[in-house]
């Protein structure tokens, strides 16, 4: 593996909610232009870890962290870093599709507008919707509410909205958990297309999804002694699912627990 080809590097990362340590001692590198998935049982801190990458945890009053996350050599948690700027470069797609109660057009345009986009907005909207494989389905009803779409379309709208801001990294927090299998497959195909331009990190409950749609997989589990999540194993997805190094990983991916 080439050195310096990491989009994000977590070093000695510990995340707390009040005095409770939710995630401990994470050492993890996210490869540029690859899809990395986080798998693990409920409550193991996958989402908490994901949200640390664009400082979404800052919004939770009681959360704080120790350690560092480096982005191009800069620690995102340095005191001179503005979390708003971090989120402009590292976008996020959420578990439940959450389009704004605005028109489809405005859903895309809004993020770009607040980020100071000056170019041709119509073009940007079309381009973003095309990238999210949604253009053909909505091109005739751009003025309708984003909430009039089906769940799968809403989620692709949310992805399009994220793309319109032109981030470098896209974090996805169980983006398919509220979707049916066909919509899920569409999102997975979309991720593969987006991978050429973006680094993608995805949290998933669905092991087949991780196996199908990601290049690297991190398996997290909860330490039964202090209930903190820790990383059991990190490897290329193929390796992880064919010859797991760790007994816990093997038990989890073969469905013996979780």
């Amino acid at each position: 593996m080439m050195q310096g080809n990491y989009a994000l590097q977590a070093k000695d990362l510990n995340i707390y909610y009040g005095s409770f340590r939710a995630v401990k001692d994470i050492e993890l590198n996210i490869h540029t232009n690859k899809i990395t998935s986080f798998i693990g049982p409920s409550g193991c801190g996958k989402s908490t870890l994901l949200r640390a990458f664009n400082r979404m945890n800052d919004l939770i009053e009681i959360s704080h962290m120790k350690g560092s996350i480096e982005y191009k050599g800069k620690n995102l948690y340095d005191s001179d870093v503005d979390p708003v700027e971090v989120r402009r470069r590292i976008g996020m797609v959420f578990q439940k599709p959450n389009p704004f109660p605005k028109s489809i057009y405005d859903n895309i345009a809004w993020g770009a507008k607040i980020n100071g986009f000056r170019g041709n907005m119509d073009e940007l909207v079309e381009e973003s919707l095309r990238s999210a494989a949604l253009w053909d389905e909505v091109k005739d009803k751009l003025d309708q509410s984003g909430l009039s779409l089906s769940g799968g379309q809403q989620q692709r709208l949310c992805i399009a909205r994220t793309i319109a801001v032109k981030p470098e990294i896209i974090l996805m927090d169980e983006p398919c958990s509220a979707l049916d299998p066909i919509a899920t497959l569409k999102i997975e195909e979309l991720m593969r297309q987006l991978q050429e331009e973006y680094t993608i990190v995805i949290v998933t409950h669905n092991m087949q999804q991780a196996a199908r749609a990601s290049d690297y997989t991190a398996f997290l589990n909860m330490d039964s002694s202090d209930r903190a999540g820790y990383m059991v194993e990190f490897n290329e997805t193929n390796e992880m699912f064919t010859s797991p190094q760790n007994q816990e990983t093997e038990d989890y991916i073969t469905g013996r627990f979780g």
Partner: peptide
Amino acid sequence: SLRQASYGLGA
């Protein structure tokens, strides 16, 4: 979730 979406876009 709407606030999160907004913050996630760098608002």
